[in-house]
Simulated scan of single mutants.
Amino acid sequence: MTILITGARGKVGRAVLDRLHTGGLPIRAASAKPAELTVPAGVETAELVLDRPETFAAALDGVRQVFLYPNPAGIDAFTAAARAEGVEHVVLLSSSSVLAPDAETDPLASHSLRVERALTASGLPGTFLRPDAFASNALAWAHPIGHGLPVQLAYPDAHITPVHPEDIADIAVEALTGTALRGRAVTLTGAQSLTFREQLAILSEVLGRDITVETITHAEAEQQMGRFMPAPMVGSLLALWAAASAGPAAIADTAESLLGTPARSFRQWATENAAAFTVPKE
């Protein structure tokens, strides 16, 4: 009755792995580079590459549940192999972006949407976790904040509901070990709508130093972000943030509504990760 954890090097995947291991459940961590995984003693590892079907059998042997990161490459072959190996349930870390009207063509949303549709078509019972923006996305500001530079944003007043990655992990574990979430698609948010400017104000308070917010043009943001990600993805994000500047973001399912435990706040995340915004002294 092994649980297969894909994306075991990711923040959420590793947190899910650790929780299940602490609970004494049999788990297997999968990665395209299993030799690079660092897992607790007694946790199995396996190679799994979705566009290499020859890796499926060993990874899925004896597996009854899968925690799956969304990767459309080879997903149809993977779901077929999972069914053949007796997998009974898949918990997918999807994205709230799949709910957008243009999800089929949007480069961010389509990635997760294709996986959701493949799982649905396969007949495998599944739970789709659709988190909104991660609180940890704020790490994109670590360099300017750490070096005392202004944080430049095209849409500083865009509203989002940042969700703490640990809340996502808690909900994923509940989906894997309980029955209340089985077969559901849940949109996950934090408990508070915050603008980027408000998030930076919280970081400023936590760090005890001023953070300057500088508004730049859409074109300037395109140029800056284009150094690190493909142009279609940049366009998708900027369009999302432009629309989000209209008003507060909606609160959906949270750790409170799904688990009965208070949702972790952005301030809590900022406090836990304050060191990431400070450049070590030489």
Score class of each variant (00 low, 15 high):
Gly7Pro: 15
Gly7Ser: 15
Val16His: 05
Thr22Trp: 01
Pro26Thr: 03
Ser31Arg: 13
Glu36Thr: 13
Val39His: 00
Val39Phe: 00
Glu47Thr: 09
Leu48Glu: 07
Asp51Leu: 08
Pro53Tyr: 04
Thr55Val: 07
Phe56Asp: 04
Ala59Cys: 04
Leu60Glu: 01
Leu68Trp: 08
Pro72Phe: 09
Pro72Leu: 07
Asp76Trp: 00
Asp76Gln: 11
Asp76Ser: 04
Phe78Val: 08
Glu88Ile: 01
Leu92Phe: 01
Leu92Val: 00
Leu99Gly: 07
Asp102Gly: 14
Leu108Thr: 08
Ala109Cys: 13
Ala109Lys: 11
Ser110Arg: 13
His111Arg: 15
Ser112Val: 03
Ser112Trp: 06
Leu113Met: 06
Val115Asn: 02
Val115Asp: 05
Glu116His: 00
Ala118Pro: 02
Ala118Trp: 01
Leu119Pro: 00
Thr120Trp: 01
Thr120Met: 02
Pro125Asn: 00
Gly126Tyr: 01
Asn137Tyr: 09
Leu139Phe: 13
Ala140Gln: 11
Ala140Cys: 06
Ala142Gly: 12
Pro144Tyr: 00
Ile145Cys: 09
Gly146His: 04
Leu149Ala: 12
Val151Thr: 12
Val151Arg: 07
His164Ile: 04
Asp167Tyr: 04
Asp170Gly: 00
Thr177Tyr: 06
Gly178Val: 10
Ala180Leu: 14
Ala180Glu: 15
Leu181Lys: 04
Gly183Met: 14
Val186Pro: 08
Leu188Lys: 08
Ala191Trp: 09
Gln192Ala: 15
Leu194Pro: 14
Thr195Tyr: 10
Phe196Ala: 05
Phe196Ser: 06
Arg197Leu: 09
Arg197Asp: 12
Ile202Glu: 14
Ile202Arg: 08
Leu203Thr: 13
Glu205Leu: 10
Gly208Pro: 02
Gly208Ser: 01
Asp210His: 14
Asp210Ile: 06
Asp210Gln: 14
Thr212Asn: 08
Thr215Cys: 02
Ile216Gly: 05
Thr217Phe: 02
Glu222Phe: 05
Met225Ala: 15
Arg227Asp: 07
Pro230Met: 14
Ala231Cys: 03
Ala231Phe: 06
Ala231Val: 09
Leu238Pro: 07
Leu240Cys: 07
Trp241Glu: 14
Ala242His: 15
Gly247Thr: 02
Pro248Lys: 11
Ile251Tyr: 04
Ser257Lys: 06
Leu258Ser: 06
Leu259Asp: 04
Thr261Arg: 15
Gln268Thr: 13
Ala270Gln: 06
Glu272Pro: 10
Ala276Trp: 10
Phe277Asp: 02
Phe277Thr: 01
Val279Thr: 15
Lys281Tyr: 04
